[in-house]
Design a binder for these strands. Structure first.
Lengths: 200, 200, 200, 200
DNA sequence: TATGAATGAGGGTTCATTCAT
DNA sequence: GATGAATGAACCCTCATTCAT
């Protein structure tokens, strides 16, 4: 005889043997991070988000800190590939600028990456393990950019993008794409003087 | 017979009638924010840091959210003046660059501002009130910069600084001041091509 | 409008301002210790036993270990006075033996002291703070006995009593009072050879 | 792709077909009992101590209570033989006293027995099954002693030893062997009046 | 005005036990 | 036979907030 369903409408969860449950928990943790930030990372929130019993989270992760660390690691891995893929078809400086402008004035899907990135950066301020992770991520991002701009300009460009993305996340009256384009274009190629689309 | 002490470490303190206690509490809250981030903002932590009884915090602030908001407001106000003052003696582009390089490769006192700034930015992502505060801060910062660079370049410079400060906070092997100087110099004056100290 | 009573029949507890609640919690903890042993010392058990909300226990005691330590300290203090009082009217060796036999073949009220004493001894094995407490208790007990027997015999007598009390607690077929009396009498006065009531 | 490890430290161990694993688990449980007391008896602790997978403990024992009971039973059996063997070469009262003094002022190996004995006694207070076990142990111990002292004195001697061992376990400034010897000698032979080594 | 006692929700974590493999 | 994934209860403790004094 099966146990009765609880009264509160939540269906019984008979799910035993669920492979890659661990990965699903990590994805749920990233969802929570986007919506609530690091304060939202609790066993109970993550479990509810992953539609998994509480004990399942504590079973797979020895501590919340470890869960958070692995979630961030998963993000960096996934986002690293995505980021590199953005530049796959880029041949000219103009195309590079196009991609970067899209990066800043991003779609909702970019919003997620941006928020997670900043959460990681802030968490890394006080966690050496996360600091190493963030450093690796920054390095690989700059390597991607450096293929187009050279090493030094890549660092500069990366910092500019970081700041612009943060501002874009926060601003209520979004700066026009044109202003963003100009700023990026000048950084990608300092000889650019005009604010409009580079024609040469 | 003396009344029993509570179990936590809060000792008995006979300080009655303490003007500007409210301000001291806010400063303590900022200290906590620097050291532990927004998760550390609890009545007990702040009270202990301010060396003030627990009830004093709840008495002066209707809720924790309000305490945090006022603490951030105090920070923006203080930091705004400080920031403007940094540029008081600046006359040439070279001097501007000097000040900005110092801003990025900051002393420990700058560390505090940088951390609080990022804490504010991240908290503002999910709190409309803080978002307005952060927006005002960004605007006034850019106005200061714009006195030297014009409006558009100020926004670009501000974003660059933001990104470089974050990277400087996180990196383990700090990038040389020279690289920072070059990046800033090129942004301040796009005609700069060399990486070394600008001579005029 | 008062909040409604909970559905499970437990009456609402409007009790604010309850002085010597801390002492009541400690007494409840001792009750729990008697009934369930150290494993039963949980915030919830003690709170329920003291008819006090859970938060009240955590408020008054910084940790469970501290609660347990203070409870044992309270027991030692109370029991110390009781123990000394047992010998107030003792004038002769025979009266001393009478009191000690009663101590071993104790009433239910003695059961409590015996169990708490052994719980303390065992807990003290692994807790230096409790070890000091237990040592002090043993010392003061032996001082009381020494007033009748001298220092060395007091130690011997104390050990014998300890062992007999433990056996009395455990045995299913209780040894007769006569056997206990004989054993004690021989220890109190080694010249005693017979097993029956000392007449001299 | 390897299956994920659980979050706790239990590593993968390829030991299949391990006879007398059950006995090894019981010995591990006794080790845990000595070090942490009955609260430490958990499936995980015992499994880790025995270097055995978690499931192995639940497989061999229907419940934790049963595991504990069997561990105590194993202790009583082993310790019973050991205890009897202590008296194998005893011929005179003086030799008997020597053995008993060693029993109280024991080496580390005796420490283990003493702690386990008291753990058993206290656990038996609240568990009828263990009470029977403890009663049997006490009986057989007294039978060994009775071969030298007679039935009544054996019970008295056993109680004295029990108390002295407990005191010896707890005391920080260990009572001298001489005092212990005197106490035992007087109990073994009430005609003994002097405190020093009995010469006949 | 100012304080600290009081409360209950919710936090991280450990655990005995069940069960599919 | 043997194992480890899975589950939910219960653990200790921290906390925001309320309120009597």
């Amino acid at each position: 005889m099966a146990p009765p369903d609880p009264a509160d409408g939540t269906a019984r969860r008979p799910r035993r043997h669920d492979p890659d449950r661990k990965a699903r928990i990590l994805d749920a943790a990233l969802d929570v991070l986007v919506e609530q930030g690091t304060v939202g990372i609790t066993h109970r929130h993550v479990a509810a988000r992953a539609d998994v019993p509480l004990g399942s989270v504590t079973y797979h992760f020895a501590s919340l800190a470890e869960l958070q660390a692995q979630a961030f690691a998963r993000f960096v891995e996934q986002r690293g590939s995505e980021f590199a893929a953005l530049f796959d078809g880029v041949r000219t400086r103009a195309e590079l600028v196009d991609v970067l402008v899209d990066l800043v004035h991003g779609s909702p899907s970019r919003h997620r990456s941006a928020v997670l990135g900043f959460e990681l950066h802030l968490a890394a301020l006080r966690d050496p393990g996360l600091r190493a992770l963030a450093a690796g991520w920054t390095r690989s991002s700059q390597e991607v950019l450096a293929r187009f701009t050279g090493q030094d300009d890549a660092a500069r460009l990366d910092a500019l993008l970081e700041g612009m993305i943060m501002h874009a996340l926060l601003t209520t009256e979004p700066r026009s794409r044109e202003a963003t384009r100009t700023a990026i274009a000048r950084t990608v190629d300092p000889r650019e003087q005009g604010g409009s689309r580079a024609t040469r």
